[in-house]
């Protein structure tokens, strides 16, 4: 017999909110992975490592920004605009150097080479910030400063609602980019036939660098938004590498809609799983991944284009 409080509305509402928040983070961590694979045919195992990098950069920035400003708007702008922009530039440089030769090789070798990139990034992070967990100081922590509000009888974190909102904006923004803008349409064409687009005289390398850097920047954005409500540890990277693969496999490789739906599924599974079956909560995620690959290898939406 389940106690009535467990079935009560506030409790379920709380888990749904947690699930949405977790889904938002998963979306940030994995959307770029699926786009880079779908459009550029690169399976970048190291993708979610940039989520971890974003988290560390955010902790460092917020802990050093106190002397300049503690205004909430400024702090949020740093997380949402400044850090992703910085990582965007970094990613563009990496695409031209480290990742450039990987576009030419088979997916299996891409997996292995980018596994090497994970190992390198892991140590770069440890070198810069140490191996012990670090967190954002209370004075410049937007999550603590914003507090909670009361919604239908349960207290809801304002900051985490903000993160969910940014994820929704990001998903809508990407969708509009693909259907409305020229660059988006070129990217869609590239996912269909890369060489044909190249032959039409379009500078595919420029589009490639843009898509790759944008994808990495979104992952870093996710990490930056994640960290005020958590701590940055080297394990975060490895955890999200695995989870982001679960997301894109369940959603279907290369599908924007797939990432949104799969993030929601895994977010909810984990949120309710932690509450009701904590011992096997992670196992459910991988079991789901196994079932999808066996029963429907193309994933929920993988046989469709990037945005259909």
């Amino acid at each position: 017999m389940i106690p009535e409080t467990l079935l009560g509305q506030p409790f379920v509402l709380g888990h749904t909110f947690n699930g949405l928040y977790f889904a938002a983070l998963l979306f940030f961590a994995s959307v770029g992975l699926t786009l880079v694979f779908g459009i550029l045919n690169l399976l970048n195992m190291a993708h979610a490592a940039f989520y971890g990098l974003g988290a560390y950069i955010a902790v460092w920035t917020l802990n050093n920004i106190g002397d300049i400003t503690t205004t909430m708007v400024a702090l949020l702008l740093v997380l949402v605009i400044v850090i992703p922009l910085a990582v965007f530039v970094l990613a563009a440089a990496l695409d031209k150097t480290v990742f450039a030769p990987l576009y030419e090789i088979e997916p299996v070798y891409q997996l292995l080479a980018t596994f090497g990139v994970i190992l390198m990034l892991d140590d770069i992070i440890k070198y810069l910030w140490g191996a012990t967990p670090i967190s954002v100081d209370a004075a410049t922590n937007p999550s603590r400063q914003l507090g909670t509000i009361d919604l239908l009888g349960s207290s809801v974190s304002v900051y985490r609602s903000f993160v969910i909102l940014i994820a929704v904006c990001c998903a809508v923004g990407l969708y509009l980019m693909f259907v409305k803008t020229k660059i988006g349409k070129i990217s869609q064409a590239m996912s269909e036939d890369y060489e044909m687009v190249q032959m039409l005289g379009i500078n595919v390398t420029r589009v490639r660098v843009l898509i790759f850097s944008l994808s990495i920047a979104i992952a870093a954005l996710g990490g930056a938004l994640f960290v005020p409500f958590a701590v940055a540890t080297p394990a975060v990277t490895l955890e999200y590498v695995l989870l982001s693969f679960a997301v894109i496999v369940i959603g279907g490789l290369g599908s924007l809609k797939g990432v949104v739906v799969a993030s929601l599924i895994i977010g909810m599974v984990r949120s309710f799983g932690i509450a009701y079956v904590p011992a096997i909560e992670l196992a459910i995620v991988f079991a789901l991944m196994v079932v999808v690959i066996i029963a429907k290898p193309e994933g929920l939406f993988g046989d469709e284009g990037v945005v259909e």
């Binding site: 596994f115 090497g116 990139v117 190992l119 390198m120 892991d122």
Partner: peptide, 10 residues
């Protein structure tokens, strides 16, 4: 040493 190993693998 992770960095070294990663570089070698790459």
């Amino acid at each position: 040493w992770h960095f070294t190993m990663g570089l070698v693998l790459f």
